[in-house]
Nucleic acid binder design. Structure first.
Length: 662
RNA sequence: GCCGGCGUAGCUCAGCUGGUAGAGCAUCUGAUUUGUAAUCAGAGGGUCGGGGGUUCGAGUCCCUUCGCCGGCUCCA
């Protein structure tokens, strides 16, 4: 009888009669791993546990490795198998359902897997508990997941017979000579799938269906719309519970909810979708954001510019927006036989300023910055609170420089971005370098030399600062490569904010020039750069990052003055006036309520400081200070408190006074 | 834009199989004068998103439209 030599990573070896399944081999070598394993790697390749090891032709030992819970690979398999279970349950409950694809998701913080289906009748949210129940029932039956390798023709036949046109389409596209399919025993489910999968449904214990939504087949708007059922799965109920809790935390921080509760902003149906109204409290935050940014811009050598919101349509032909971006622009409007169009971007306007005079190499680099409000015709379904809107203000800047100075400019942009985000309390970042891909349909502009020169500058800047980044081919816009900086918020979500982009397009189209040392005209290098991206969106990110509890310098109301009885009201007003004179934002609560109620109100408004004032404070000219996150911190003179509050504001401290040490 | 869900007082929500709207909070008024997360009482407030239809009768059923939510697509 032939044998196969198997070996674990730890060196354990055995010679077993072939063929033998991976599961049996593992049992011989490591009982514990055999019990825990979801799948295994055989000579590095992921396989099911019932994969049969044949007698090796060479004498080399077959390397086996159990893939164990706690690893991403195992979680991936778990979710993939749970997606299959979902499909099986749906087929079981709704015969005639057509299946699309059902992949696991690891990077998506919202969901763990999905399956796209077309059910005979549309499924609704109310069906989710029913489907989930059936999944549990199936899981408890300890049914086997079984792989089969069959000829492509046979697979096509099977799925055609089952009237699964989408699967047929997939097999035709993807399948080789033979294809692999997976069964779940005792269910009507078969899937065209490379696997691997768990051996038995008893491994699927902690899962939850989450949502149902529409999805186009293959993401193509022209193809039929299917229903996507989302769920997630973990190895233990505890992990699932923790994940659900995190999700609730995200919900608690939802900027749309906090925006209303804290009276920061609104969006009003009768005025239009995706248009933001900044209320006084949101306005106070915006003013601080903008003041800070403008001060920094000036310190860093930017010129602040202001440009119109609308321009002749002809301009947008020159810029190429009419050609490439018209779908995202508001329709033209006419005045005295001239057409105008709202601006979706600021670039052409900054170019206008550049072109208003002849530029010498001595003038460069020129840095124009604007908090420029733009309008974009976003589809209604994409709108989302402050995050995706139709009118917003970009903290936009354009750098015009010579090829020699561009590296320095990029380094400065990156430094600027990091400095800004640290001020707002972001500590972790993810940087992406998007470069040209091979896709010729994208119509990349600029020569190969341009692209490689630009990439050298971008990479040079990141390397100079020792910033790790991911290089993504094909992600660049057709007009140039870029660096995107994503920040991680307080609960670990990533937000794409900063972008630094080369532009080979506009300088050509607008025939930008500068006179070089040689007296000849040269084309300047143009870089677009936004830090916040959009002021509205960044505000939304901040609301969620802080959960509405803004640090002192940004807080819409910084201090609540709370007199204990109405005898104290005059003193309270005088304290408030005193603080306001120092540019602090103060509200006084003179309602005839008990102090506990006033504190509660202030606390719910997340006001950083409360001053509790009674007879003692009035007599002594002091204030009893209560800090938002720490409660009562004792009595001090009004002047001492004022100085403390000012220090916190000026230092843009992110935390309360005890932690900041002021 | 597409798919699904939802739209009742400022907010959060109740309102069963159709019988002509309700709670809590908020608001206002009065009482209370309070020492660190909700004092008590009373009052006002809704063309049930808009329009059309079915019906003796529609918040409830149907159609349509607008908006919101979750996704998809899009984000040169």
């Amino acid at each position: 009888m032939s044998e196969v030599n198997v070996q674990l990573k730890n060196g354990a070896q055995a010679s077993l009669p072939a063929p033998v399944t991976v599961a049996d081999a593992l049992k011989r070598l490591d009982r514990d791993a055999a019990k825990q394993a979801l799948i295994a790697r055989v000579n590095g390749r992921e396989v099911d546990l019932d994969f049969k090891l044949e007698a090796a032709e060479s004498g080399d030992a077959v390397q086996i490795e159990a893939v164990l819970p706690g690893t991403n690979d195992a979680l991936y398999v778990l979710r993939h198998s749970t997606a299959h279970l979902l499909a099986a349950a749906v087929l079981d409950l709704f015969p005639g359902t057509k299946l699309g694809i059902g992949p696991p998701l690891l990077d998506d913080p919202r969901y763990g897997f999905f399956y796209d289906v077309i059910a005979p009748q549309p499924l609704t949210e109310a069906d989710l508990p029913v489907i989930e129940k059936r999944m549990r029932d199936l899981a408890k039956r300890n049914v086997n997941y079984r792989r089969d390798e069959i000829a492509k023709a046979e697979a096509l036949h099977i799925f055609a017979e089952r009237d699964e046109p989408l699967k047929v389409e997939l097999i035709e596209e993807k399948g080789g000579e033979t294809v692999s399919v997976y069964y779940i025993d005792n269910t009507p489910f078969i899937d065209f799938c490379v696997g691997p999968h768990v051996a038995n449904s008893n491994r699927l214990k902690a899962f939850k269906l989450l949502a149902i939504s529409g999805a186009y087949w293959k993401g193509d708007q022209e193809r039929p719309q299917m229903q996507r059922l989302y769920g997630t799965a973990f190895f233990t109920q505890e992990e699932l519970d923790a994940w659900v809790k995190q999700r609730e935390e995200a919900e608690r921080r939802d900027h749309r909810r906090l925006g209303r509760e804290l009276d920061l902003f609104s969006i009003q149906e009768q005025y239009g979708q995706g248009l933001i109204f900044w209320h006084p409290k949101g306005g106070a935050v915006r003013k601080e954001m903008e003041d800070y940014l403008r001060d920094e811009l000036i310190k860093r050598g930017y010129g602040l510019v202001f440009t119109p919101h609308i321009a002749k349509r002809k301009l947008w032909y020159i810029s190429g927006h009419e050609e490439n971006y018209a779908d995202s622009m508001f329709a033209p409007t006419e005045l005295e036989e001239t057409e105008f169009r709202l601006k979706p971007m600021n670039c052409p306007f900054h170019i206008g300023i550049y072109k208003s005079a002849q530029r010498s190499y001595r003038d460069l680099p020129l840095r124009y910055a604007e908090l420029g409000t733009v309008y974009r015709a976003e589809l209604s379904g994409t709108l989302h609170g402050l995050m995706r809107v139709r009118g917003f203000t970009q903290d936009d800047a354009h750098l015009f420089c010579t090829p020699e100075t561009v590296l320095r400019e990029i380094v400065d942009c990156v430094d600027f971005a990091y400095s800004v985000f640290k001020t707002f309390g972001f500590e972790r970042f993810k940087v992406e370098l998007s470069v040209k891909g091979n896709d010729t349909t994208k119509g990349y502009l600029g020569s190969d030399e341009d692209w490689s020169h630009a990439e050298t500058a971008l990479v040079g800047a990141l390397d100079e600062r020792g910033i790790p980044y991911e290089r993504i081919e094909g992600e660049a816009a057709f007009y140039g490569p870029k660096i995107d900086i994503k920040v991680e918020d307080a609960i670990g979500r990533l937000w794409q904010l900063t972008t630094v982009q080369f532009d080979f397009n506009l300088p050509e189209r607008f025939e930008l020039e500068y006179i070089g040392e040689d007296g000849q005209a040269h084309r300047p290098v143009m870089v677009h750069r936004a830090l916040f991206g959009s002021v509205e969106r960044f505000f939304g990110v901040l609301i969620e990052h802080y959960a509405g509890a803004f640090p002192m310098w940004l807080a819409p109301v910084q201090i609540a003055v709370l007199p204990i009885t109405d005898r104290i009201n005059d003193y309270a007003e005088s304290v408030a006036r005193n603080l306001r004179a120092a540019s602090l934002r103060v509200e006084t609560n003179v309602r005839s309520e008990k102090i506990g109620a006033k504190i509660r109100t202030a606390q719910l408004q997340k006001i950083p400081f409360m001053l509790v004032l009674g007879d003692r404070e009035m007599e002594e000219g002091t204030v009893a200070v209560r800090e938002r996150s720490r409660g009562d911190i004792g009595v001090m003179t009004t002047e001492d408190f004022k100085a403390l509050a000012q220090r916190l504001v000026e230092s843009r401290a992110l935390v309360n006074i005890a932690e900041s040490g002021v």
